[in-house]
Design a protein around this nucleic acid. Structure first.
Lengths: 121, 121
DNA sequence: GTAAACTATGAAGTGTACTTGAAGGTCAAG
DNA sequence: CTTGACCTTCAAGTACACTTCATAGTTTAC
């Protein structure tokens, strides 16, 4: 598929996809160039971009997502090391979930006080 | 207290606190200027900054935090309107928590597959 | 009375993640 | 055979949240 179609399927823009490629988040397994120099994408590109998008929504930077994906493909780590890295990322997510829940609790706690003098700092 | 002490108590830097003031996140109820032009802060400043910090950790922008805090102090909204705005923010937080949990589920699902050919997109 | 450690301002620089613009090549439809 | 909708690259611009720098005034300790 062409970049326009990939953009449609992922909810990104063609410019963002080119930017991600430039940042090393996509590689030759996701696209090839046709004779006219147009990028053609595989289904793997859709899944990779959706994974990156989900990571972004979860607060990971592009660099973090690239590192995470890279651990999958490196030969410099054992399978157990790779699993440990992913488990570490999961723990990070759980810490963040706890932070959001703390903020939620803070807002809930302030809710009944709203409007009172000095209730909100 | 001076800016250095406020920074210590909040985990921010003096520069960041001045920046927040410049961005309208602190006002005269949080500090006054001494004769030497030094800022002196009240305890309210500590709580305000910790609230902002918590909001930041939860993914809210400074502009969002300022808006949220402003709803507390405006006279242009009824108490019910204010509560509705805060409830809306809480709903936003819950959507974000769901996104983080989705990412967590994605990573957990990939965990047992790691190292297998084509397992990770 | 001077050195260290604070305070101030304003402007410029940094990193992340894009977005926009310029200038041009390609392709399908009528 | 031209119009419109794609595609290309590269450079510059934008928004956010700071950080750093330059310059200068103030306060505390010895």
């Amino acid at each position: 598929m062409l970049i326009h179609e990939l953009a449609r399927q992922t909810g990104l823009t063609p410019a963002t996809i080119r930017y991600y490629e430039h940042e090393g988040l996509l590689d030759k397994t996701h696209s090839y160039r046709a004779q006219n120099n147009y990028r053609h994408y595989t289904e793997a590109a859709v899944e990779r971009l959706l994974l990156i998008k989900q990571g972004q929504a979860a607060g990971f930077t592009l660099a973090e997502m690239r590192e995470l994906i890279d651990t999958w493909y490196t030969d410099a780590l054992t399978l157990d090391d790779k699993r440990a890295i992913v488990l570490h990322k999961i723990a990070e997510l759980e810490r963040r979930i706890a932070e959001l829940e703390a903020m939620r609790a803070t807002l809930l706690a302030k809710l009944p006080l709203m409007g009172q003098v000095g209730a909100v700092t």
